[in-house]
Nucleic acid binder design. Structure first.
Lengths: 126, 126
DNA sequence: GGAACCTTGACACACCTTTGGTAAGGTTTG
DNA sequence: CAAACCTTACCAAAGGTGTGTCAAGGTTCC
C-alpha cells in the first residue's frame, strides 16, 4: 500500500495540506480517493508535486499560470486562437512565408527526434 | 498618413485610452511613437486591438492570460519545462511511446501543409 | 497663445487569487 | 470510544488585475 494521506503527502513534498487541496481544485493534481473520500497520493503524484515546486521556482510562475497552460493544452480551439493572435505582428525582422515556418517546424522535429534517440529515458511512463 | 492617436484608436477599437496604455505595458501591443512621444496606432495595431477583444470574449480570457501566453512563446526554456510537466500523468488511456507522439506530430504537419497548399492567403503579411 | 490634444505618474476602488484558519461532521484505529 | 486523522464549507487577509480619474507638464494647430 504505497499511497499517502494529505498530511503525509504535504510533509514529504513541502506543500501544506491546504495547498494540496487548492492544487487539486485548479485541476493540476487530482489524487485518487479512498472509499470514504480520503485523498490518496501515490508515488506519481508525489513526484509531480515536487517537480511542480521546482517548475514554479525555476521560472517564477504561479499555480494559476500552470493551470492556464493546462487549459490551453486541453482546449485546442483556444490554443489555436491565442496562437493565431500572437503569431501576427510581433517583431518580424524579415518576411516569413508559410513555407519558411513549416521548414523551421520540421527542423525542430528533427532535433526532437535526435534527442529521443540519444536519450532513451524519454518514454512516457506507464 | 494613416496612424491614429490614442483617443482615436480607442474610439475605433472599443477600448479606452487607459486600456490601450495598459495593453502596451503588459507587452501585447506596442505602437510606434511620434517624434514627440505620442503613440501612433497604424492599421495593423487597430486590427490587432479588435481581434484581441474578440479573442478575450470568445474564450473568456483576461489580458494577463494572453500576456502569459506571449511570455511562454518568448521563453523557450519555460515553454519546454511547463510542457514537460503537463506532459506527465494527465489521463493516458494507453501507453504512448515517444515514437507514437512524433508520428502524430508529423501527421499534424502533413495536415498543415495541406491547408497551406489549399489556402494561399496563409502568408505572413509584410 | 489658447484649446485640445498628448505624456507619465499617482491614488483609488472592485474584484479575483492565493493562502491560512476554523468549524461541523465522518473515518480509522489502538 | 476517544484520539487523530479526514472531509467540505466558510471567513479573512495580503497581494495582483483591470479600470477610472486626476495632476503636472509637453505638443499641435487654428
Amino acid at each position: 500500500m504505497d499511497a499517502l494521506t494529505i498530511h503525509e503527502a504535504a510533509e514529504t513534498t513541502g506543500w501544506t495540506p491546504r495547498m494540496l487541496r487548492y492544487i487539486e481544485r485548479i485541476g493540476l493534481i487530482e489524487p485518487a480517493r479512498s472509499d470514504s473520500g480520503y485523498r490518496m497520493y501515490g508515488p506519481g503524484e508525489l513526484q509531480r508535486l515536487r517537480t511542480l515546486r521546482e517548475l514554479l521556482a525555476e521560472h517564477d510562475l504561479g499555480l494559476g499560470d500552470v493551470a492556464f497552460s493546462l487549459r490551453l493544452r486541453q482546449d485546442g480551439a483556444m490554443q489555436e486562437d491565442v496562437d493565431a493572435w500572437l503569431e501576427a505582428e510581433p517583431r518580424r525582422p524579415e518576411t516569413v512565408t508559410a513555407e519558411d515556418w513549416l521548414r523551421w517546424e520540421q527542423e525542430k522535429h528533427a532535433r526532437i527526434l535526435e534527442a529521443v534517440n540519444t536519450n532513451p529515458k524519454m518514454e512516457t511512463t506507464a
